[in-house]
Design a protein around this nucleic acid. Structure first.
Lengths: 204, 204
DNA sequence: CTTGAAGTTGACCAAAAGGTAAACTATTCA
DNA sequence: TGAATAGTTTACCTTTTGGTCAACTTCAAG
């Protein structure tokens, strides 16, 4: 019973949007409230600090959206290396859209925020780490499957996944920093190279 | 003539330290002043905003320190691929020290700040971009030299450099986010792999 | 149609932040 | 010695921010 409201959702959305488009540091409770069209009193009805809200916003964005995308692209029904290339391609295309819409490549909010909050703000830091660790596991299991198929070179799959994921996130961040989508264009191809797939030499 | 002072240097140092250990977002003029042991009036005597100071701090840290390290490690007297592996190794070892001293892997301030300020704060953003672009060029020219020597696979050196540099910065950022030095351990080896050096198969 | 739970509002407060300026101090050159 | 220059300090102001609270509104179940 009682009154209904979507204010909580609006706050989560506003916070994520500010974090993604700008940064965690730029978050103020006033700014979030204004963007969400919610009064400060209501903010404190739902959350007890901006850190709590930000962690919740990252959580929602992953468990209610991002994860589904990963699940689809990394589906076991797709050949393992294709999961990776398809994922890379989809990120590239996604960021093209983002740049068109916002005038800026925005990259991955967890990675940016994770780096920003790594030495404080435990709630946010831990949430970013949690999500990034989950994303890493998609890479790892695709690599393991590719190795089992003989499609990827053998070797420590966890270490390779860390490399590939670092390369991926690093490229995304460069694209954000330089607002330059070209950092993402060769991602699919470069990912395959990293996994040392045997290639048919393209004879000119 | 007039009075002497190192207040300006102390402000630059304090700002860089705060940015590196925490983040750009956490910078406040009061905090910088307190850390530097300088009164706010003096701050405004030397700088006109925190953004100006931060850009100057990044500038100083690169042109008065960082660049020398790159120049030494990427010296033309060293075989090109060794420049890269030696660089990677030195970053790994450097960050071990950083973690020991500060309890945290801190990574590369330009990369963190660049990502944080990419959609505002033009002065800082441009300075971070400038420095990162210069760093990229060290990679690019080493790759070019390695290709000329036949030590690295042929192909678009600029694109390869972007890949390698993204991988490098991505790994550093992961190490920072997870406070986990292991992201950097295999950097030298992984860098060589990325450049597709012909390897002597290690026969067990 | 009332009652209580759920959510909203506006007014308010204290602290922190950005920013200014006039008076002061130290240095050096003439 | 005394300007002129370079840097420092203190006190002050305004705006922004984080945070609280009591009064108010809406809703739905009994």
């Amino acid at each position: 019973m009682g009154r209904k409201s979507d204010a909580k959702e609006r706050l989560l959305e506003a916070a994520l949007d500010l974090i993604w488009k700008r940064s965690y540091g730029v978050l103020t409770i006033d700014a979030i409230c204004e963007k969400a069209g919610v009064k400060k009193g209501s903010f404190y009805y739902f959350f007890d600090s901006k850190s709590t809200l930000a962690a919740a916003a990252l959580h929602e964005s992953w468990y209610a959206c991002g994860k589904d995308v990963y699940d689809k692209l990394f589906s076991a029904s797709v050949p393992p290396l294709e999961r990776i290339t398809a994922f890379m391609k989809s990120v590239y295309e996604g960021q093209i859209e983002v740049q068109k819409e916002h005038g800026q490549v925005l990259g991955c909010p967890c990675f940016s925020v994770g780096s920003e909050t790594c030495s404080e703000d435990e709630a946010v830091r831990e949430k970013a780490r949690e999500i990034l660790s989950q994303q890493l596991r998609y890479f790892e299991s695709a690599i393991r499957d590719a190795q089992a198929d003989g499609a990827a070179a053998a070797g420590d799959a966890a270490a390779k996944a860390k490399c590939l994921f670092s390369f991926f996130e690093g490229s995304l961040a460069q694209a954000r920093i330089h607002n330059d989508i070209s950092y993402l264009k060769n991602l699919p191809e470069a990912a395959l190279n990293m996994l040392q797939v045997q290639k048919n030499a393209a004879v000119g």
